[in-house]
Write a protein that binds this DNA or RNA. Sequence first.
DNA 1: CTTGATTTGTACGTATGTATT
DNA 2: AAATACATACGTACAAATCAA
Lengths: 134, 134
Amino acid sequence: MIDRQDHRPLYVQLADILREQIRTGQLLPGAVLPSELSLQQGHDLGRPAVRQAIEVLEREGLVVKERGRPTRVREEAEREPIVLGPNDEAITRMPSDPERRRLGLPLGEPVLEVRRGDGGVDVYRGSTAVVRSR
Amino acid sequence: MIDRQDHRPLYVQLADILREQIRTGQLLPGAVLPSELSLQQGHDLGRPAVRQAIEVLEREGLVVKERGRPTRVREEAEREPIVLGPNDEAITRMPSDPERRRLGLPLGEPVLEVRRGDGGVDVYRGSTAVVRSR
DNA sequence: CTTGATTTGTACGTATGTATT
DNA sequence: AAATACATACGTACAAATCAA
């Protein structure tokens, strides 16, 4: 329940509510979130608060937004192993906005950058990569 | 230069301009970005467009915002090696909002989660971790 | 195929709160 | 105390993408 006496921002409160629904399986992966309008009406909030709450979840990689379509709970992608050789290094970072579009990544998804011992660099989709040694 | 005839959103255009200034060293790490107000006036934009542009850079991990202080270009943190054993795995993901606060991470920073062969799990600050094999 | 309803995206303005300088 | 800077939150309008009738 949103509490206007609470010191926490309204959008944080709403984000917490929705995150909890995702965590408990009340909103399953692939499920559609209530539209912005119904969230506004259902919680008596303005549009900015609702959008900011959903944005928090998007940044966490919990939901995916597409224009014209209802926002959905992100489905867990399968992880593909990335093998790290003895002279390789891996770092994680956020892609730049142009890079993100080029790679076809949703907002809120980091990349895994592997710098090979031979000087090569590979960039992987963060949500699907698992680094293994050897 | 912001072009209102351009098909790209105004905030994307402004984000591109600022990103370029950071890339070329016109804005060095640690440097202060122009305030929202001066960006509004300097580019003839409203506040939402300016804030959204800066938010794009924040999501990329390029700038850090602190309430009451001017927004600054993020300084490159030194990378600390994380050694991955033969039975360990590492994945990258965005932290949840509560987790992010607990770890003291700025917005726009992923975490590196290492699942040890013995069942233990370590979570590292993404911007400072380098995974090495062996 | 077209229309209309739904949903999210972009962008404006305004007011007030809070932290820092 | 005052000025500066970002944060929260409201409202509004129109655009663009999607989908179902």
